[in-house]
Design a binder for these strands. Structure first.
Length: 802
RNA sequence: GCCGAAGUGGCGGAAUUGGCAGACGCACGGGACUUAAAAUCCCGCGAUUGUAAAAAAUCAUACCGGUUCGAGCCCGGUCUUCGGCACCA
């Protein structure tokens, strides 16, 4: 009989669909297990072989958990709002919803071909109004709790297409589509106060099982720093210039101050600044600079002194000049700094360029060379109130002094900024807010949700950079839900991250029209037990969804403080040439072709065997063939079966060892070695004259999560009861895994010279005796004298000679 | 610059976390089967020296040093590659 994978796979996929084999139940006596993979963006290109890697991994985990007696939720859906679809619509005029529908159909067909055990009855789509109704609902809750607010914020604007651009459409400071210059234009945008959750987003990482690299990149991104906020009096005014510093211990070295070009004091004190024209033109120049240019010229400090505006050092009383420079950011701290050139590299460079004093106040470095920035090493000098103190002690003391004098306070700052939530785009969730002439911003009442996207003629943003919805007065003119007078709808839409920030909640109860999900369902399924996704989502997506989840927890919608109990991430699959797969490089491999030429089970097996799951690995067609050969040999196994009870005595030990290995390896995502162990066991089987039914059955179950179609088919052909999908996972007996006889390597001075075979439980005396009978050992020892002998039970015997 | 991960045969990668380096697979070589090829099956496969063939020895986990009876694994330093962040005071 030949392995007709095409027919077999189709057959089993139909059975699974028909019998709803993998449907999860919201009430069950079994323990629950919620496995989640990142839902894809259904692009026009379809799947490439990178997609199946994480899906197959969690499919294996899910299938195994089911056999182990869990009620498993393993869902799939579509993160379907997004730029490529919108750009395609701009180009062709085809409505994004139509494009999305077609792409989803294509993706779904491709996924089905690979035989995943998704519960398709729970499929969701972020662009479905029944879904985004709840995305809008969450936004309204955020607004009601003061976590959504409007603020002036710059967007990218292409000066030649006159269109607002997403960050990813700006390439090296130029428009991705026309190459035109991109500048920043300030718009009034919705912001979400994620910063309010910054500390909890750090602290609660304690509660979850994420890889260290993921935790540390979250912590890094949030960027907590401790320091002080200090007031400097502006000379001859009543006002203070407040700065943030992590090094209040260096305040005696502050020889000037710098404010950011966007700082309000510039205009407020315009009349006092004698060179205001020069200052203004500097500010305008830096406003025009794109982020790219600003960071491009990192080392080249520019700036202008504010003539006529000086500050007073509150500790020393010294009068120091104030500069404006774009190396100070308005968006961090207070938008102003005290510059300590001796102990900050940026201030050092600025001071060198402008000929300002560089005054050492912490000893330990050589400030003629570079700033000495070590915060823990040096000792305070030239600092009358804290001279002689070091590091943390100096910092604490200085803060105490400042607090006593009422000129400063301890302060924690975060690099994390509030989340810019508005997009001047069509293909996103409409923001469910109206602006009433009398009442201000008012959220839509719940019974008016979802606020659906209207049909538009043109998907381009307007030439002032507004969303296409801003061209539709018949849509945006409305009445105020509170007072009934004239109001205008928000025409911006939500960013891509919105729908994906809570989708895992919807899977628990995807058809609910009364709530985002039934509280009972949430209570039953949350938290997600295991969430796998790409490293590229470990900052934004993971942080945003943790933020929303925490907010929903605070308002009593979800029952857990964290959404995902465990997070893992997979490595990329590269092209055969070891480069990232891309259309332009022509090294993209399409999973459909692999399925057609070799079968879904081969694709699955190969993707798991390709290498360490967390590392990138290059595709290899020959490697695929190797896995196909493995399955071909598996398919022939039934021919070897002869009647017999239980495991073959010659195989029993190895079967127990393999059950153990495969069980543990799947749990720790070492799929490559799990497959290797099964290949090894197969080699042992085929070395035998015959095998028993029990030998075969156990092998099939162990292989089933990885290669579900072929194993079910063989199972059925052999007439075994029911299906593997309803058969328990095999158990191993630790005692039966153990070897009776062990081969102990014998070393002389750390070099293996011989091996002795002894009973596994042999005592040291017995082993020693065997070792000393070895001719090879005797030869190596020669005439040297034995200094010491070390025996590690069951592992090694080492003789030290001199 | 900062943070993170990694560096092992011709290749993808193993190594129970300090105990036989190279599992498993690919590629390659030899053989069987075949009119022939493909497929399949069997054998070999880190390098050097050595041998008729064996045996055996030496060297090998990016590099240098250390700890240890023993290091791919631990410690100190250096180099390289990849990923993320980047004027955050």
């Amino acid at each position: 009989m030949y392995y007709d994978y095409g027919k077999i796979e189709k057959k089993w996929q139909e059975i699974w669909d028909k019998e709803e084999t993998f449907k999860a139940s919201n009430s069950s006596d079994k323990p629950k297990f919620y496995a989640l993979v990142e839902f894809p963006y259904p692009s026009g290109q379809g799947l490439h072989v990178g997609h199946p890697r994480p899906y197959t991994a969690l499919d294996i985990i899910s299938r195994k958990k089911r056999l182990e007696g869990y009620n498993v939720l393993f869902p799939m859906g579509w993160d379907a709002f997004g730029l490529p679809t919108e750009n395609y619509a701009i180009k062709t005029g085809v409505h994004p919803a139509v494009v999305t529908r077609d792409n989803v159909a294509h993706f779904k067909k491709q996924l089905k071909m690979i035989g995943y055990s998704f519960d398709w009855s729970r499929e969701i789509n972020t662009t479905d109004p029944a879904y985004y109704k709840w995305t809008q609902w969450i936004f309204i809750q955020l607004f009601k709790h003061g976590l959504a607010y409007k603020k002036e914020f710059p967007i990218n604007f292409c000066t030649s297409c006159k269109v607002g651009l997403a960050n990813e459409e700006v390439v090296n400071g130029h428009c991705e589509r026309c190459g035109g210059e991109v500048i920043r234009v300030v718009k009034n945008q919705w912001m979400l106060k994620i910063t309010e959750y910054a500390q909890r987003l750090i602290d609660d990482l304690e509660l979850v099982d994420y890889p260290d690299r993921v935790k540390s990149s979250q912590i890094n991104w949030i960027g907590r720093s401790e320091g002080a906020q200090v007031d400097f009096q502006l000379k001859d005014t009543d006002e203070k210039l407040t700065v943030y510093t992590t090094r209040p211990d260096t305040i005696y070295g502050a020889t000037y101050m710098v404010i950011s070009p966007e700082h309000p004091y510039i205009e407020q004190y315009a009349s006092r600044i004698s060179n205001i024209d020069e200052v203004r033109s500097y500010c305008q120049e830096s406003a025009k600079k794109s982020d790219f240019e600003r960071t491009e010229l990192v080392k080249d400090k520019t700036g202008v002194r504010l003539e006529g505006l000086d500050a007073v050092n509150p500790i020393s009383g010294e009068v120091i000049p104030v500069f404006v420079s774009d190396y100070v950011l308005m968006t961090y701290g207070t938008g102003a700094i005290m510059a300590v050139p001796a102990h900050d590299q940026r201030d050092y460079e600025f001071a060198k360029k402008f000929g300002l004093e560089i005054r050492e106040v912490i000893s330990g470095g050589d400030i003629s060379e570079a700033a000495y920035t070590d915060a823990s090493g040096g000792t305070a000098v030239n600092s009358p109130l804290i001279n002689g103190l070091k590091g943390k002690e100096a910092i604490s003391k200085m803060i105490e002094i400042m607090e006593e004098k009422g000129i400063g306070t301890r302060k924690v700052n975060y690099k994390l900024r509030d989340w810019v939530f508005s997009r001047q785009r069509y293909w996103g969730e409409p923001i469910p807010m109206v602006k009433c002439d009398k009442c201000g911003w008012v959220p839509l009442p719940e019974d008016q949700l979802p606020l659906e996207l209207p049909q538009v003629d043109n998907y381009m943003t307007t030439d002032t950079g507004e969303s296409p919805l801003a061209n539709m007065p018949e849509w945006y003119n409305t009445t105020c839900p509170v007072c009934g007078s004239h109001a205008v709808r928000e025409t911006d839409t939500m960013p891509n991250w919105a729908g994906s920030s809570w989708y895992y909640l919807r899977y628990t109860d995807p058809h609910n029209d009364k709530a985002l999900a039934d509280p009972e369902a949430l209570k039953y399924w949350l938290p997600v037990n295991w969430y796998n996704g790409g490293m590229e989502h470990t900052t934004l997506h993971l942080l945003y969804s943790r933020f929303w989840h925490k907010f929903l927890y605070d308002i009593g919608v979800v029952p857990t403080p964290e959404p995902y109990a465990k997070r893992t991430s997979h490595g990329m699959i590269l092209g055969e040439n070891n480069e990232k797969m891309s259309k332009s490089k022509g090294n993209v491999v399409n999973p459909d072709e692999v399925v057609t030429s070799y079968g879904a089970d081969t694709l699955r097996t190969y993707e798991m065997f390709i290498g360490d799951f967390t590392q990138a690995a290059p595709w290899s067609e020959n490697g695929v063939k190797g896995c196909k050969r493995f399955l071909d040999r598996v398919f022939k196994l039934p021919d070897m079966v002869k009647p017999g009870k239980g495991y073959s005595p010659a195989l029993e030990k190895y079967i127990h060892q393999t059950i153990k290995k495969v069980t543990e390896d799947i749990d720790s995502m070492k799929f490559n070695t799990a497959v290797a162990a099964l290949m090894k066991l197969l080699n042992l089987y085929t070395d035998q004259p015959s095998i028993t039914d029990e030998d075969l059955r156990t092998f099939l179950i162990l292989l089933n999560p990885t290669a579900p179609h072929i194993t079910e088919e063989i199972w059925q052909t052999c007439g075994y009861p029911s299906q593997i999908a309803h058969t328990p996972w095999p158990k191993y007996d630790e005692a039966k895994c153990a070897e009776d006889m062990v081969e102990i390597p014998v070393q002389v001075n750390g070099k293996v010279r011989d091996k002795v075979t002894v009973a596994a439980d042999a005592d040291e005396e017995t082993v020693k005796e065997a070792v000393h009978q070895s001719a090879a050992v005797a030869r190596s020892v020669g005439s040297s004298s034995i200094v010491r002998e070390i025996y590690v039970k069951g592992k090694i015997y080492n003789i030290v000679v001199k």
